[in-house]
Design a protein around this nucleic acid. Sequence first.
DNA 1: GTGGACCTTCCCATGATGGGAAGGTCAAGG
DNA 2: CCTTGACCTTCCCATCATGGGAAGGTCCAC
Lengths: 137, 137
Amino acid sequence: MNIGQASDASGVSAKMIRYYEEIGLVRPMGRTGNNYRVYGEEEVHILRFIKRARNLGFSLEETEMLLKLWQDKERTSAAVKEVATAHIGDLERRIAEMQGMVRTLKHLAHCCGGDERPNCPILDDLAGAPAPAPQPV
Amino acid sequence: MNIGQASDASGVSAKMIRYYEEIGLVRPMGRTGNNYRVYGEEEVHILRFIKRARNLGFSLEETEMLLKLWQDKERTSAAVKEVATAHIGDLERRIAEMQGMVRTLKHLAHCCGGDERPNCPILDDLAGAPAPAPQPV
DNA sequence: GTGGACCTTCCCATGATGGGAAGGTCAAGG
DNA sequence: CCTTGACCTTCCCATCATGGGAAGGTCCAC
């Protein structure tokens, strides 16, 4: 299998496959005489693993750990769970942060006329004016 | 005011102040004879505006638009509100995406023993096994 | 006059991804 | 046999916002 076929089979772009190779995540089975990378089912499986991990928001560094655990038949499920729960915590922290932004922005947008006049509580807030008290909804 | 003092007064690092200048967000009032940047209250105000916008998750590009609207006395509040609501939509999309990840991960982590044994549904999922049915909580 | 705390510019790194150039290879069809 | 197009290769650059650090100039207090 050439890199293009591996890309089709895994859903990972050829560009990224080469990059994952560069950072040590997945190596081709070998090279043909013309220096083309050759992949087999195993490599495609790894690429799909990486893609799935990325879809769940794991960084490539975390993905690498998970990949090593996957390939380590002596792993403990505790080790895997630890990586996962740390990531969940991370996501939840970021979600909470963004929810805070949304809450503030919605309040400001709600207070903004959104009309032809220049007066705007959103800009007032950004400019450092004390925030208008949130109205009970 | 030197850049260090402007940094202290605005909470923006000197490094970032220079960068914001480079991309056209804020220029120093002038330079001293020794080529030091000089800032006044107005520039510090702009820096705080930028910082606040960044804290609300606006990109520097969006921040630039908001800054221009702020400085344009002819602006309409509708224009400002549009930038804000677009950003809210963006945040909500990202939050929903991350919540989906968390939901999946929590389910998988819940199904994972987290013990000394190697058997692990998290890895099974990443490896492409059909997900175990979520148990009603 | 010396040391330390500033300031300047310039280059590099991050993380994950894509764009694109320049050049080699292969297969199919004229 | 030759061309064309679809592959492949490596290499460099860009993104976004931020920080690190080097090399060198400046200023103030002791």
